[in-house]
């Protein structure tokens, strides 16, 4: 069939010119992200496994038990997650994928931070302005439904192979929930509370920081939880453009037809996902 409207060509031309004219920007982003990922990796790997294990177990216990940490009821609430976290991390360590798990976690952390830094302000903006909401909404749909491979190609084009295109692809895929849920959370703040704020002379900033954001926080935290899980689900695809970690082992397993490798690394991702999910969810469900 004949092409009447060659959109692809236009996009390609646009991307080419972006690449050539803004190359300093892309290399700066590349340098920044690579630096962050590598240093964070080195830092985590420099800490002995046992200490990280203890630290994460403590965090899990703390987010569940809260200020009842030293009481029996706190212990009752928190022991399940704590034991699960310890067993899960021991399993990953015992399978011999500790380093890869750290690499994956780093990638998830960096992507999540970037996604939140971009996503929450956009979420606030679209909550405050219906016009912004109308414009941003289809862009989010695009980011979530466009197959990841499609934007991996230009990502490599801009940043060459490595961690950076992996992070960028992960950010694109995992960012939408942070925008959507920040938007939803703020819009759901009861009108009478905001009106009370206005009646006492609160300006827009005071209303945002003293009323809307605190009241929207549980929803925003649910959004952050979603961002983390989506980021984790992107690690295998990110590994195809050179990101290191458990994803790249899965990818190797596929290429080498190695069931054992594939299953182990896959299991590692699942365990990691459950730990991150349960911990962040507990933060969200606290008062």
């Amino acid at each position: 069939m004949e092409k009447i409207l060659p959109i692809g060509e236009y996009i390609e031309k646009g991307i080419n010119s972006l690449e050539q004219n803004l190359s300093f920007l892309w290399s700066a982003i590349d340098d920044g992200i690579s630096w962050l990922v590598e240093n964070m990796n080195d830092l985590f790997l420099a800490i002995p496994f046992v200490i990280i294990l203890a630290l994460i177990a403590f965090i899990a216990y703390y987010v569940k038990a809260g200020n009842k940490m030293f009481t029996l009821s706190g212990l009752k609430k928190a022991y399940g997650l704590t034991i699960f976290v310890i067993l899960g991390l021991l399993l990953i360590y015992a399978m011999g994928y500790w380093e890869e798990a750290i690499q994956t976690t780093t990638l998830v952390i960096v992507s999540t931070i970037i996604a939140l830094i971009l996503g929450i302000p956009f979420g606030i903006w679209s909550a405050k302005s219906n016009t912004a909401d109308t414009v941003i909404r289809p862009i989010l749909d695009f980011m979530q439904t466009m197959p990841a491979f499609v934007y991996l190609i230009p990502a490599i084009f801009f940043f060459s192979v490595g961690n950076t295109p992996g992070v960028i692809a992960t950010v694109i895929f995992s960012l939408p929930p942070s925008v959507r849920l920040t938007n939803l959370g703020i819009r759901n703040v009861p009108g009478d509370v905001i009106e009370a704020g206005r009646a006492f002379g609160a300006n827009e900033n005071q209303i945002l920081y003293k009323i809307q954001l605190p009241l929207a926080m549980p929803t925003i935290l649910a959004g952050i939880n979603q961002v983390i899980l989506l980021a984790l689900s992107m690690v295998v695809i990110a590994s195809m453009v050179g990101a290191k970690g458990l994803g790249s082992i899965v990818y190797q397993g596929i290429q080498q037809n190695d069931i054992a490798k594939g299953f182990e690394s896959g299991l590692g991702i699942v365990v990691l996902a459950m730990i991150l999910d349960r911990i962040t969810q507990s933060i969200g469900s606290k008062k």
Binding site: D192, V193, E195, A196, A199, F200, G201, L215
Partner: peptide
Amino acid sequence: TRRTEMSMVFQKFGLL
């Protein structure tokens, strides 16, 4: 004016 001259009490309380 709202900060220093008039304050308001609401039917639905409007507490944080």
